[in-house]
Design a protein around this nucleic acid. Structure first.
Ligand code: SF4
Ligand code: SF4
Lengths: 164, 164
DNA sequence: TTATATTTGGACAAAAGAGTCCGAAATCTT
DNA sequence: AAGATTTCGGACTCTTTTGTCCAAATATAA
Protein backbone atom coordinates (compact mmCIF):
# COMPACT_ATOMS: atom_id res chain seq x y z
CA UNK A 1 0.00 0.00 0.00
CA UNK A 2 1.20 3.41 -0.88
CA UNK A 3 0.21 5.11 2.36
CA UNK A 4 -0.18 3.54 5.80
CA UNK A 5 -3.59 3.07 7.33
CA UNK A 6 -2.72 5.67 9.93
CA UNK A 7 -1.97 8.16 7.20
CA UNK A 8 -5.19 7.49 5.33
CA UNK A 9 -7.20 7.90 8.50
CA UNK A 10 -5.37 11.11 9.26
CA UNK A 11 -6.13 12.53 5.84
CA UNK A 12 -9.79 11.56 6.05
CA UNK A 13 -10.09 13.12 9.48
CA UNK A 14 -8.35 16.30 8.37
CA UNK A 15 -10.74 16.66 5.45
CA UNK A 16 -13.65 16.06 7.79
CA UNK A 17 -12.49 18.68 10.27
CA UNK A 18 -11.86 21.08 7.42
CA UNK A 19 -15.42 20.54 6.22
CA UNK A 20 -16.63 21.48 9.70
CA UNK A 21 -14.77 24.73 9.69
CA UNK A 22 -16.95 26.18 12.36
CA UNK A 23 -15.75 27.98 15.46
CA UNK A 24 -15.90 24.97 17.74
CA UNK A 25 -13.74 21.92 18.19
CA UNK A 26 -14.78 18.69 16.55
CA UNK A 27 -14.65 15.74 18.92
CA UNK A 28 -12.60 12.74 17.91
CA UNK A 29 -15.39 10.35 18.77
CA UNK A 30 -17.66 12.16 16.33
CA UNK A 31 -15.08 11.93 13.56
CA UNK A 32 -14.44 8.26 14.31
CA UNK A 33 -18.06 7.22 14.29
CA UNK A 34 -18.90 9.26 11.22
CA UNK A 35 -15.91 7.99 9.27
CA UNK A 36 -16.17 4.45 10.64
CA UNK A 37 -12.67 4.46 12.09
CA UNK A 38 -11.71 2.90 15.41
CA UNK A 39 -11.97 5.71 17.95
CA UNK A 40 -8.95 4.66 19.98
CA UNK A 41 -6.81 4.28 16.93
CA UNK A 42 -7.85 7.59 15.45
CA UNK A 43 -6.98 9.16 18.75
CA UNK A 44 -3.35 8.16 18.26
CA UNK A 45 -3.27 9.36 14.71
CA UNK A 46 -4.67 12.78 15.57
CA UNK A 47 -2.17 13.10 18.38
CA UNK A 48 0.50 12.85 15.73
CA UNK A 49 -1.14 15.64 13.78
CA UNK A 50 -1.37 17.92 16.80
CA UNK A 51 2.20 17.14 17.79
CA UNK A 52 3.26 18.03 14.28
CA UNK A 53 1.51 21.37 14.69
CA UNK A 54 -1.11 20.79 12.03
CA UNK A 55 -3.99 20.65 14.49
CA UNK A 56 -4.77 21.94 17.92
CA UNK A 57 -6.65 20.02 20.55
CA UNK A 58 -8.69 20.85 23.57
CA UNK A 59 -9.74 18.57 26.43
CA UNK A 60 -12.95 18.32 28.35
CA UNK A 61 -16.56 18.82 27.34
CA UNK A 62 -16.82 20.77 24.09
CA UNK A 63 -13.26 19.72 23.46
CA UNK A 64 -11.87 18.10 20.36
CA UNK A 65 -9.56 19.02 17.53
CA UNK A 66 -9.39 21.84 15.03
CA UNK A 67 -7.07 22.90 12.25
CA UNK A 68 -4.07 24.84 13.49
CA UNK A 69 -3.88 26.85 10.27
CA UNK A 70 -6.17 27.88 7.48
CA UNK A 71 -7.29 24.99 5.27
CA UNK A 72 -5.43 26.47 2.35
CA UNK A 73 -2.18 26.22 4.29
CA UNK A 74 -2.36 22.50 5.01
CA UNK A 75 -1.34 20.33 2.11
CA UNK A 76 -1.40 16.63 1.47
CA UNK A 77 2.37 16.82 1.71
CA UNK A 78 2.12 18.17 5.25
CA UNK A 79 -0.26 15.44 6.33
CA UNK A 80 1.70 12.59 4.85
CA UNK A 81 4.92 14.03 6.20
CA UNK A 82 3.51 14.30 9.70
CA UNK A 83 2.27 10.72 9.86
CA UNK A 84 4.25 8.57 7.44
CA UNK A 85 7.33 10.80 7.10
CA UNK A 86 8.40 12.55 3.93
CA UNK A 87 10.53 9.56 2.96
CA UNK A 88 8.10 8.74 0.18
CA UNK A 89 8.97 12.06 -1.47
CA UNK A 90 12.71 11.85 -0.99
CA UNK A 91 13.60 8.18 -0.84
CA UNK A 92 13.97 5.97 -3.77
CA UNK A 93 12.60 2.94 -5.45
CA UNK A 94 15.63 0.82 -4.66
CA UNK A 95 16.57 2.91 -1.65
CA UNK A 96 20.28 2.34 -2.01
CA UNK A 97 22.39 3.95 0.68
CA UNK A 98 24.39 6.96 -0.39
CA UNK A 99 23.05 6.99 -3.91
CA UNK A 100 22.87 10.07 -6.07
CA UNK A 101 23.69 11.48 -9.48
CA UNK A 102 27.31 10.43 -9.02
CA UNK A 103 26.40 6.77 -8.53
CA UNK A 104 22.85 6.29 -9.69
CA UNK A 105 21.06 2.97 -10.01
CA UNK A 106 19.51 2.01 -13.36
CA UNK A 107 16.11 3.34 -12.36
CA UNK A 108 17.28 6.75 -11.26
CA UNK A 109 16.09 8.96 -14.11
CA UNK A 110 12.61 7.50 -14.29
CA UNK A 111 12.19 7.44 -10.58
CA UNK A 112 13.17 11.01 -9.88
CA UNK A 113 10.60 12.09 -12.44
CA UNK A 114 7.80 10.21 -10.73
CA UNK A 115 8.97 11.44 -7.37
CA UNK A 116 9.01 15.10 -8.29
CA UNK A 117 5.55 14.88 -9.86
CA UNK A 118 4.30 13.31 -6.69
CA UNK A 119 5.88 16.03 -4.59
CA UNK A 120 4.57 18.98 -6.58
CA UNK A 121 1.07 17.63 -6.77
CA UNK A 122 0.82 16.73 -3.10
CA UNK A 123 2.18 20.15 -2.20
CA UNK A 124 -0.42 21.82 -4.36
CA UNK A 125 -3.34 19.82 -3.03
CA UNK A 126 -4.60 21.46 0.15
CA UNK A 127 -7.50 20.82 2.45
CA UNK A 128 -9.09 23.90 0.96
CA UNK A 129 -8.69 22.80 -2.64
CA UNK A 130 -10.15 19.42 -1.82
CA UNK A 131 -13.00 20.98 0.10
CA UNK A 132 -13.76 23.45 -2.65
CA UNK A 133 -14.07 20.74 -5.22
CA UNK A 134 -16.08 18.66 -2.80
CA UNK A 135 -18.73 21.22 -2.04
CA UNK A 136 -19.48 21.73 -5.73
CA UNK A 137 -20.61 18.17 -6.18
CA UNK A 138 -22.22 15.93 -3.66
CA UNK A 139 -18.87 14.34 -3.02
CA UNK A 140 -18.33 11.78 -0.36
CA UNK A 141 -15.65 11.39 2.24
CA UNK A 142 -16.36 7.91 3.51
CA UNK A 143 -18.72 5.10 2.64
CA UNK A 144 -21.61 6.83 4.33
CA UNK A 145 -20.58 10.38 4.92
CA UNK A 146 -21.07 12.83 2.10
CA UNK A 147 -19.41 16.15 2.06
CA UNK A 148 -22.55 18.17 1.46
CA UNK A 149 -24.04 16.92 4.71
CA UNK A 150 -21.54 18.92 6.69
CA UNK A 151 -23.78 21.95 6.36
CA UNK A 152 -26.61 20.29 8.25
CA UNK A 153 -24.30 18.94 10.89
CA UNK A 154 -23.03 22.42 11.63
CA UNK A 155 -26.55 23.54 12.41
CA UNK A 156 -27.65 20.66 14.54
CA UNK A 157 -24.77 21.05 17.00
CA UNK A 158 -24.53 24.80 17.21
CA UNK A 159 -21.58 25.92 19.32
CA UNK A 160 -21.67 28.31 22.26
CA UNK A 161 -18.09 29.46 22.44
CA UNK A 162 -15.23 29.53 19.96
CA UNK A 163 -11.70 28.23 19.93
CA UNK A 164 -9.37 28.47 22.94
CA UNK B 1 7.52 2.91 2.19
CA UNK B 2 6.17 2.96 -1.29
CA UNK B 3 7.18 -0.59 -2.23
CA UNK B 4 7.66 -3.58 0.06
CA UNK B 5 11.12 -4.92 0.75
CA UNK B 6 10.21 -8.05 -1.17
CA UNK B 7 9.35 -5.96 -4.17
CA UNK B 8 12.56 -3.96 -4.05
CA UNK B 9 14.61 -7.13 -3.80
CA UNK B 10 12.72 -8.61 -6.70
CA UNK B 11 13.39 -5.58 -8.86
CA UNK B 12 17.06 -5.53 -7.97
CA UNK B 13 17.37 -9.23 -8.73
CA UNK B 14 15.54 -8.88 -12.02
CA UNK B 15 17.87 -6.10 -13.09
CA UNK B 16 20.84 -8.21 -12.06
CA UNK B 17 19.63 -11.22 -14.03
CA UNK B 18 18.90 -9.01 -16.98
CA UNK B 19 22.46 -7.70 -16.82
CA UNK B 20 23.69 -11.27 -16.98
CA UNK B 21 21.75 -11.99 -20.09
CA UNK B 22 23.91 -14.94 -20.96
CA UNK B 23 22.68 -18.34 -22.00
CA UNK B 24 22.93 -19.93 -18.58
CA UNK B 25 20.87 -19.66 -15.45
CA UNK B 26 21.99 -17.35 -12.70
CA UNK B 27 21.97 -19.00 -9.29
CA UNK B 28 19.99 -17.34 -6.54
CA UNK B 29 22.89 -17.65 -4.10
CA UNK B 30 25.05 -15.64 -6.48
CA UNK B 31 22.45 -12.90 -6.79
CA UNK B 32 21.91 -12.82 -3.06
CA UNK B 33 25.58 -12.56 -2.15
CA UNK B 34 26.31 -10.00 -4.84
CA UNK B 35 23.32 -7.84 -3.96
CA UNK B 36 23.69 -8.40 -0.22
CA UNK B 37 20.22 -9.82 0.21
CA UNK B 38 19.31 -12.71 2.48
CA UNK B 39 19.53 -15.83 0.32
CA UNK B 40 16.56 -17.59 1.88
CA UNK B 41 14.40 -14.54 1.62
CA UNK B 42 15.35 -13.82 -1.96
CA UNK B 43 14.47 -17.41 -2.73
CA UNK B 44 10.88 -16.72 -1.76
CA UNK B 45 10.70 -13.53 -3.72
CA UNK B 46 12.03 -15.11 -6.88
CA UNK B 47 9.56 -17.94 -6.51
CA UNK B 48 6.86 -15.30 -6.78
CA UNK B 49 8.40 -14.03 -9.98
CA UNK B 50 8.63 -17.49 -11.53
CA UNK B 51 5.09 -18.33 -10.46
CA UNK B 52 3.96 -15.09 -12.08
CA UNK B 53 5.60 -16.23 -15.29
CA UNK B 54 8.22 -13.49 -15.39
CA UNK B 55 11.13 -15.82 -14.75
CA UNK B 56 11.90 -19.47 -15.30
CA UNK B 57 13.87 -21.56 -12.86
CA UNK B 58 15.90 -24.71 -13.07
CA UNK B 59 17.01 -26.97 -10.25
CA UNK B 60 20.22 -28.80 -9.65
CA UNK B 61 23.84 -27.92 -10.45
CA UNK B 62 24.05 -25.16 -13.06
CA UNK B 63 20.49 -24.33 -12.12
CA UNK B 64 19.11 -20.94 -11.18
CA UNK B 65 16.76 -18.40 -12.63
CA UNK B 66 16.50 -16.58 -15.94
CA UNK B 67 14.13 -14.14 -17.55
CA UNK B 68 11.10 -15.79 -19.09
CA UNK B 69 10.80 -13.10 -21.75
CA UNK B 70 13.05 -10.60 -23.43
CA UNK B 71 14.22 -7.80 -21.14
CA UNK B 72 12.29 -5.28 -23.21
CA UNK B 73 9.07 -7.15 -22.44
CA UNK B 74 9.36 -7.02 -18.66
CA UNK B 75 8.36 -3.71 -17.16
CA UNK B 76 8.50 -2.26 -13.70
CA UNK B 77 4.73 -2.57 -13.74
CA UNK B 78 5.00 -6.32 -14.26
CA UNK B 79 7.46 -6.75 -11.43
CA UNK B 80 5.55 -4.68 -8.93
CA UNK B 81 2.32 -6.34 -9.94
CA UNK B 82 3.77 -9.80 -9.46
CA UNK B 83 5.11 -9.15 -5.97
CA UNK B 84 3.14 -6.31 -4.37
CA UNK B 85 0.02 -6.54 -6.53
CA UNK B 86 -1.15 -3.86 -8.92
CA UNK B 87 -3.24 -2.27 -6.20
CA UNK B 88 -0.84 0.67 -6.09
CA UNK B 89 -1.80 1.50 -9.66
CA UNK B 90 -5.51 1.01 -9.31
CA UNK B 91 -6.35 1.67 -5.69
CA UNK B 92 -6.71 5.02 -4.20
CA UNK B 93 -5.38 7.38 -1.67
CA UNK B 94 -8.34 6.96 0.61
CA UNK B 95 -9.19 3.54 -0.75
CA UNK B 96 -12.91 3.90 -0.25
CA UNK B 97 -14.95 0.86 -1.21
CA UNK B 98 -16.99 1.19 -4.36
CA UNK B 99 -15.77 4.65 -5.21
CA UNK B 100 -15.71 6.10 -8.69
CA UNK B 101 -16.63 9.10 -10.77
CA UNK B 102 -20.22 8.79 -9.60
CA UNK B 103 -19.29 9.13 -5.93
CA UNK B 104 -15.75 10.47 -5.74
CA UNK B 105 -13.95 11.56 -2.60
CA UNK B 106 -12.50 15.09 -2.45
CA UNK B 107 -9.07 13.89 -3.53
CA UNK B 108 -10.22 12.04 -6.61
CA UNK B 109 -9.12 14.36 -9.41
CA UNK B 110 -5.65 14.94 -8.05
CA UNK B 111 -5.11 11.34 -7.19
CA UNK B 112 -6.14 9.86 -10.49
CA UNK B 113 -3.64 12.17 -12.16
CA UNK B 114 -0.78 10.97 -9.98
CA UNK B 115 -1.89 7.40 -10.41
CA UNK B 116 -2.03 7.49 -14.19
CA UNK B 117 1.40 9.11 -14.39
CA UNK B 118 2.75 6.37 -12.18
CA UNK B 119 1.15 3.71 -14.32
CA UNK B 120 2.36 5.00 -17.67
CA UNK B 121 5.89 5.53 -16.47
CA UNK B 122 6.22 2.16 -14.77
CA UNK B 123 4.79 0.48 -17.86
CA UNK B 124 7.32 2.25 -20.04
CA UNK B 125 10.30 1.43 -17.86
CA UNK B 126 11.54 -2.04 -18.78
CA UNK B 127 14.50 -4.11 -17.72
CA UNK B 128 15.99 -3.32 -21.09
CA UNK B 129 15.56 0.42 -20.81
CA UNK B 130 17.14 0.37 -17.40
CA UNK B 131 19.97 -1.83 -18.57
CA UNK B 132 20.61 0.32 -21.61
CA UNK B 133 20.97 3.42 -19.53
CA UNK B 134 23.08 1.55 -17.04
CA UNK B 135 25.67 0.24 -19.44
CA UNK B 136 26.34 3.74 -20.79
CA UNK B 137 27.53 4.99 -17.45
CA UNK B 138 29.23 3.04 -14.73
CA UNK B 139 25.93 2.80 -12.93
CA UNK B 140 25.50 0.77 -9.82
CA UNK B 141 22.87 -1.71 -8.81
CA UNK B 142 23.73 -2.22 -5.17
CA UNK B 143 26.14 -0.73 -2.70
CA UNK B 144 29.01 -2.75 -4.12
CA UNK B 145 27.88 -4.09 -7.42
CA UNK B 146 28.27 -1.86 -10.42
CA UNK B 147 26.49 -2.62 -13.62
CA UNK B 148 29.57 -2.48 -15.82
CA UNK B 149 31.08 -5.37 -13.90
CA UNK B 150 28.58 -7.76 -15.35
CA UNK B 151 30.71 -8.12 -18.45
CA UNK B 152 33.63 -9.56 -16.48
CA UNK B 153 31.39 -11.84 -14.49
CA UNK B 154 30.02 -13.34 -17.68
CA UNK B 155 33.54 -14.35 -18.69
CA UNK B 156 34.69 -15.78 -15.42
CA UNK B 157 31.81 -18.26 -15.18
CA UNK B 158 31.46 -19.30 -18.79
CA UNK B 159 28.50 -21.60 -19.35
CA UNK B 160 28.53 -25.00 -20.94
CA UNK B 161 24.93 -25.43 -22.02
CA UNK B 162 22.05 -23.11 -22.61
CA UNK B 163 18.55 -22.78 -21.27
CA UNK B 164 16.21 -25.74 -20.85
C1' DT C 1 -17.55 20.39 44.96
C1' DT C 2 -19.10 16.58 42.22
C1' DA C 3 -20.19 14.51 38.08
C1' DT C 4 -19.42 14.37 33.17
C1' DA C 5 -16.95 14.74 28.79
C1' DT C 6 -12.90 14.68 26.38
C1' DT C 7 -7.85 14.30 25.07
C1' DT C 8 -3.38 12.12 26.62
C1' DG C 9 -0.19 8.49 27.13
C1' DG C 10 1.02 3.96 28.14
C1' DA C 11 0.29 -1.06 28.11
C1' DC C 12 -1.23 -4.74 25.70
C1' DA C 13 -3.04 -8.07 21.79
C1' DA C 14 -3.59 -9.34 17.01
C1' DA C 15 -2.16 -9.28 12.23
C1' DA C 16 1.04 -8.59 8.65
C1' DG C 17 5.76 -8.11 6.88
C1' DA C 18 10.54 -9.50 7.02
C1' DG C 19 13.86 -12.81 7.75
C1' DT C 20 15.73 -17.70 9.13
C1' DC C 21 15.96 -22.61 8.85
C1' DC C 22 15.34 -27.24 7.27
C1' DG C 23 13.89 -31.23 4.71
C1' DA C 24 12.25 -32.75 0.09
C1' DA C 25 12.50 -32.76 -4.95
C1' DA C 26 15.02 -32.18 -9.16
C1' DT C 27 19.14 -32.27 -11.71
C1' DC C 28 24.04 -32.65 -12.83
C1' DT C 29 28.62 -34.93 -12.11
C1' DT C 30 31.41 -38.70 -11.13
C1' DA D 1 24.32 -45.72 -8.51
C1' DA D 2 26.03 -42.31 -5.32
C1' DG D 3 26.98 -37.77 -4.15
C1' DA D 4 26.75 -32.87 -4.81
C1' DT D 5 24.14 -28.70 -6.05
C1' DT D 6 20.26 -25.96 -6.40
C1' DT D 7 15.27 -24.65 -6.30
C1' DC D 8 10.80 -25.63 -3.72
C1' DG D 9 7.71 -25.40 0.09
C1' DG D 10 6.59 -25.33 4.71
C1' DA D 11 7.48 -24.07 9.60
C1' DC D 12 9.23 -21.00 12.51
C1' DT D 13 10.92 -16.44 14.79
C1' DC D 14 11.42 -11.41 14.99
C1' DT D 15 9.81 -6.79 14.01
C1' DT D 16 6.50 -3.38 12.61
C1' DT D 17 1.90 -2.04 11.92
C1' DT D 18 -2.70 -2.05 13.36
C1' DG D 19 -6.03 -2.19 16.74
C1' DT D 20 -7.94 -2.41 21.77
C1' DC D 21 -8.22 -1.00 26.48
C1' DC D 22 -7.58 1.64 30.60
C1' DA D 23 -6.12 5.07 33.97
C1' DA D 24 -4.69 9.93 34.44
C1' DA D 25 -5.11 14.82 33.17
C1' DT D 26 -7.96 18.70 31.79
C1' DA D 27 -11.92 21.20 31.22
C1' DT D 28 -17.15 22.05 31.46
C1' DA D 29 -21.55 21.94 33.84
C1' DA D 30 -24.58 21.49 37.62
S1 SF4 E 1 20.20 5.96 -7.74
FE1 SF4 E 1 18.34 7.22 -7.88
S2 SF4 E 1 16.68 5.78 -8.36
FE2 SF4 E 1 18.42 4.54 -7.64
S3 SF4 E 1 18.10 4.28 -5.43
FE3 SF4 E 1 19.39 6.12 -5.67
S4 SF4 E 1 18.00 7.90 -5.81
FE4 SF4 E 1 16.79 5.98 -6.12
S1 SF4 F 1 -13.03 8.73 -5.03
FE1 SF4 F 1 -11.18 8.63 -6.33
S2 SF4 F 1 -9.54 9.45 -5.04
FE2 SF4 F 1 -11.26 8.98 -3.66
S3 SF4 F 1 -10.88 6.88 -2.92
FE3 SF4 F 1 -12.18 6.68 -4.75
S4 SF4 F 1 -10.76 6.44 -6.54
FE4 SF4 F 1 -9.60 7.21 -4.75
Amino acid sequence: MMLSKSCIYGIQAAIYVSAHDSEEYVSISQIASELKISFHFLTKVLQQLTQAGLMISYRGPKGGVALARAAKDISLYDLVGAIDSTAIFTECLLGLPGCGVAAPCPAHDHWTKIRSELTTISRRVTLESMGKKASELNVRLSEEFRYAQSQYLDHKSAPANGHV
